[in-house]
């Protein structure tokens, strides 16, 4: 009996240790960004490539002038509705007080400054592949944007998904910063960086499993639209059938090969891509054409 209790205690302690290990929010060491200096104009390119404004501006605002990242857009999902927070430079309601390290922990690990897990509605699952230098530059650019004192709204997520610690288990199972597709040359490498890391295309264009994890075996083959209406299209070359030039022109102008125009959330994406250098749009097109 005594031996049994010892064993039981051992396994309970082990269980808690494993639980703690699996669910603990990861973060960088305090000196991880030492020696890096920020370049604000490079940060602006990162901002557009990462599509920050598409989700963090208020619902329905037009994209004229400096973006006000006051949050409030709603993102329905099978697990509840997530509401984009205020990430403007306001020190109280936005992220004006954040260090570059805070932003890096958020984007690379999905960990908040007070050590909580973010939900992957914030696509750190893609941003995890971003270069730390790009995050430092982005942090400097975000500081130049206007502050806004609109408070962030709580997510409308019910039990059990409202237990943030459980996200640790989800991350343990599904979170990876590995590349999905090989990139044999410099253009494809840039395209892959823009698609798989900053652009986070797969977050909408790849189907998800029952726990909301991306199904990498069906990479960019389309998925039900999270709104519940319609589908996000399959953008693999066999199905889409667009040329590399068609893709690059779409990213620049919003026009499909038959001169329909982009709509819905993709219209935001096209606005962002239009602000990137032409060779970046061409690199994204090259990556998509190279998909299996």
């Amino acid at each position: 009996m005594r031996r049994f209790l010892t064993n039981l205690t051992f396994f309970v302690v082990l269980g808690f240790a494993v639980f703690w290990f699996i669910t603990r929010p990861e973060s960088f060491a305090d000196d991880a960004l030492a020696g890096l200096t920020a370049d604000t104009s490079r940060g602006e390119t990162v901002f557009h490539a990462a599509g920050c404004a598409s989700c963090h501006t208020a619902p329905g605002v037009d994209s004229k002038g400096a973006p006000v990242l006051s949050g409030g857009q709603r993102f329905p999902s099978d697990f509840g509705t997530f509401i984009a927070p205020n990430i403007s430079s306001d020190p109280t309601h936005g992220i004006g007080e954040w260090s570059a390290l805070d932003l890096a922990n958020a984007m690379k690990f999905g960990t908040s400054p007070d050590g909580q897990h973010y939900y992957p509605a914030f696509p750190y699952t893609s941003y995890a592949r971003a270069e730390v230098q790009d995050i430092v530059d982005l942090h400097a650019y975000l500081a130049t944007l206007p502050g806004d004192a609109t408070p962030s709204q709580p997510h409308e997520v019910g039990f059990p998904f409202n237990i943030r610690l459980a996200m640790g288990g989800w991350k343990f199972l599904f979170f990876s910063d590995e590349w999905t597709i090989g990139a044999p040359n410099e253009q494809l490498e840039r395209g892959r960086y823009l698609v798989e890391a900053l652009g986070h295309c797969a977050e909408c264009h790849t189907p998800r499993g029952p726990l909301g994890n991306l199904d990498n075996s069906a990479w960019l083959t389309g998925a039900p639209d999270p709104s519940g209406k319609g589908r996000v299209p399959d953008i693999t070359p066999q199905t889409l059938g667009w040329s590399e030039g068609d893709l690059a022109y779409y990213f620049e102008s919003g026009f499909t090969p038959d001169f329909d125009s982009s709509g819905g959330h993709m219209a935001h994406v096209v606005e962002n891509l239009g602000k990137l250098p032409a060779q970046d749009r061409e690199a994204i097109a090259a990556y998509l054409i190279a998909l299996p």
């Binding site: 319609g230 589908r231 996000v232 982009s262 709509g263 819905g264 959330h265």
Partner: peptide
Amino acid sequence: HKAYREPS
């Protein structure tokens, strides 16, 4: 289309 068109 951004504001008023549903996905296809």
